[in-house]
Amino acid sequence: MSVVVRTVTRLLLPAVVMFGAYVVMHGHLTPGGGFQGGAVIASAVALVVVAFGARRIRRHKETLSVLEDVGALAFVVLAFLGIGGTFFYNSLAGTGGLFGQEVAMGANPGALNTGGMLPLMNWAVGLKVLAGLGSIVLLMGLLGGDDDR
């Protein structure tokens, strides 16, 4: 791609990744969540593939594959952690530990340290969606010869 696209990509990339990470991390407080934030970060991967060519980040293919597996396994394991109650039982909510702060009732902006299992599941699903969609775009970019123009 042209130098304009590459420069704009260099400028925009940190902001896009930062916004995606924000959406994933605040999934239990603000609109968005794991799927949306992962899709936003995957669009950053797509930006890099379109602007710089897929050959540049070909060595990260295995990394994305491993990340996808880790996300999926973490999601299922987190769901199994609540098996004392039911599958997907929120066993961390209100215990005072990690993400276990008591939630103030009524309409309030909320605290980051609440939510129990929900932030961890958001991270797992975000990792999975980021790696899955990113690897699809990367494989499509790697298809065929080197035709960066």
């Binding site: 999934g27 239990h28 407080l29 603000t30 609109p31 969540g33 799927f35 999926a72 999601f75 299922v76 769901a79 599958f87 997907f88 929120n90 909510a93 209100g94 276990g100 008591e102 939630v103 009732m105 309030n108 902006p109 909320g110 609440t114 939510g115 129990g116 299992m117 929900l118 599941m121 958001n122 699903v125 999975k128």
Partner: peptide, 26 residues
Amino acid sequence: QEEAAANNVVTAVLFDYRGFDTLGEA
């Protein structure tokens, strides 16, 4: 807010009440 400890009701439904839907999506 008391059951799922989340201010975002959409996330509470997505990951707690209807977790199997999210598992199927994944």
